[in-house]
Amino acid sequence: MRIKGPKDFWAGLMFIAFGLFFLVWAQKHYQMGTAVRMGPGYFPSVLGGMLALLGLLVLIDSLVEEGPKVARFHFRPVIFILIACLAFAYLLKPLGLAGSIVALVFISALGGYEFNWKEVSILAAVMVIFSVLVFVKGLTLPFPIWPAFMN
């Protein structure tokens, strides 16, 4: 058996995995109820089953019909962008808005094609000033501005 449409093959697998997960989990943990009085497990079970079935159809399709290859997965932007978001979120309370924005800007800039220290530093500074003025002063979001150890 040869995979003719890799894009559909992986998409099918993804849908089957999600579908089965919701189906099995709902069956195991929640009550089905009856059609008249549906329990919390009813709707997710039905949908999970449908999703797995659709995934199977997509998968079969990928074995029968010629399809496009999966374009290259670019790990560099994925990793740096996602880490930048996480860094911002988990540094906001300990390092304040200023520290977390600097972290976000620098880490995310590493995900791009070019990295220019001077440019990124200026950008980080501008973003800190702008965000503090607009979000903390203007919109009164309850964020600490400076790192906790400086207060």
Partner: peptide, 25 residues
């Protein structure tokens, strides 16, 4: 390269402020 870190800052602030927890980010 200037634009996307700025967008990211706004997005992260917006999502964080939903419940003031890192979990949303």
């Amino acid at each position: 390269r200037i634009l996307y870190p700025s967008i990211l800052v706004f997005m992260s602030i917006g999502v964080f402020s939903l419940s003031n927890q890192p979990f949303d980010c």
